[in-house]
Amino acid sequence: MKLEIAICDDDISTCSDLDLLLMDYGKENNHEFSIDIFYDEKRLYQMLTEGKKYEILFLDIELNNEHTGIDIGNYIRDELKNEEMKIVFISSKESYAMSLFEIRPTHFLIKPLVRNQIYKLMEKILSIFFRDDYFSFKIRGHIYKLKMSDILYFEGSNRKVKIVLRNEIIEFYSSLQEVFEQVKDRKFYFVHKSYLINYEKVIVFKYDELIMLNGNHIPISQAKRKYIREMQLLHEREML
């Protein structure tokens, strides 16, 4: 599988260094990459608008042009509705990290870029691409599969479970605990006895509720509030 990767940074040396590190990683680990480099955002916007698909985008936040990296990230998520692309933000300022969660980035890199840092990040991203990432369920004797990245959350009531996607709800007979056994290693968390959420599909964290990608509000039970806050802090630290 050849991965399509884009680098967008107005600093030529950063692009060159990152391109070399990625190619070295690919050669050393038998992975094939196709890498496009953009020194400003206009050509990248054009390519994305024309339908170009990238698996990974390394994106500088402080582009010295009309748009910032955050603008591009919002365009990818909100306008193109692309949740599959792994966005890795690059910046010389660590202060940006906590303001990027609505874009749901995979990681946040601080300049200057370091070989070990890039290698560790690529191992993490590739482990996501090459794992079995489907949720299986049964309706009337037939087995169905959904990509876990398409699932916003599960809602349980009695012996029925609703799978909530961005524009669809699927219902089948099971329990949330049985569902959890299948998704527990994929950043799905209980926030309430009736809700099992995909952490990567949360766009707003509040003390007593979460707002999901489709705008739905999910309550956090009192017993789960400390736990969810700890999970949020853990994932924020993992980005750095």
Results as ranks from 00 to 15, higher is better:
Ile37Cys: 11
Tyr189Asn: 09
Phe172Tyr: 10
Pro219Trp: 08
Lys193Phe: 07
Ala223Val: 13
Lys162Val: 03
Val204Leu: 14
Ser99Asn: 14
Leu48Met: 11
Leu152Asn: 13
Glu66Arg: 12
Lys81Trp: 03
Asp9Trp: 08
Lys145Ser: 12
Ser175Met: 04
Asn65Trp: 05
Asn198Thr: 10
Phe33Asn: 02
Glu209Cys: 15
Ser99His: 14
Asp19Ile: 00
Val179Arg: 01
Phe129Cys: 04
Leu80Val: 06
Leu176Gly: 04
Asp10Phe: 11
Asp132Trp: 02
Ile163Asn: 01
Ile197Lys: 06
Ile76Glu: 03
Leu146Gly: 02
Gln46Cys: 04
Tyr153Met: 08
Val164Ile: 14
Leu234Ile: 11
Gln177Arg: 13
Ile110Pro: 00
Leu213Gln: 15
Arg166Ile: 05
Glu66Tyr: 09
Gly69Trp: 07
Glu238Thr: 08
Glu28His: 07
Thr49His: 09
Pro219Arg: 11
Ile90Met: 09
Glu62Met: 13
Lys111Pro: 00
Val183Trp: 04
Gln177Trp: 03
Leu176Lys: 04
Phe130Thr: 13
Val114Cys: 08
Glu155Thr: 03
Val161Gly: 02
Asp133Cys: 10
Ser91Val: 00
Leu213Lys: 15
Ile76Thr: 04
Glu168Cys: 02
Arg166Lys: 12
Ile163Val: 12
Lys2Gln: 13
Phe180Pro: 02
Leu22Ile: 07
Glu32Cys: 09
Met148Gln: 09
Asn158Gln: 12
Glu55Thr: 03
Leu80Cys: 03
Asn74Ala: 08
Ile103Glu: 02
Leu176Glu: 03
Phe130Gln: 04
Met212Trp: 11
Leu20Trp: 05
Val202Asp: 09
Tyr39His: 11
Asn216Asp: 15
Asp19Ala: 07
Leu44Ile: 05
Tyr144Gln: 02
Asn116Met: 06
His217Val: 15
Asp60Trp: 04
Asp208Arg: 13
Lys52Ile: 10
Ile72Gln: 02
Lys86Glu: 14
Ser174Gly: 05
Tyr144Ser: 01
Lys147Pro: 08
Phe135Tyr: 15
Gln182Ser: 11
Tyr195Cys: 07
Gln222Thr: 15
Met47Ser: 13
Thr14Phe: 03
Gly73Ala: 07
Asn158Pro: 00
Ser127Thr: 12
Gln177Met: 07
Leu113Met: 02
Ile37Arg: 11
Lys111Ile: 00
Ser99Gln: 14
Phe89Met: 05
Phe101Val: 06
Lys160Asn: 10
His107Arg: 15
Lys201Met: 15
Gln182Asn: 10
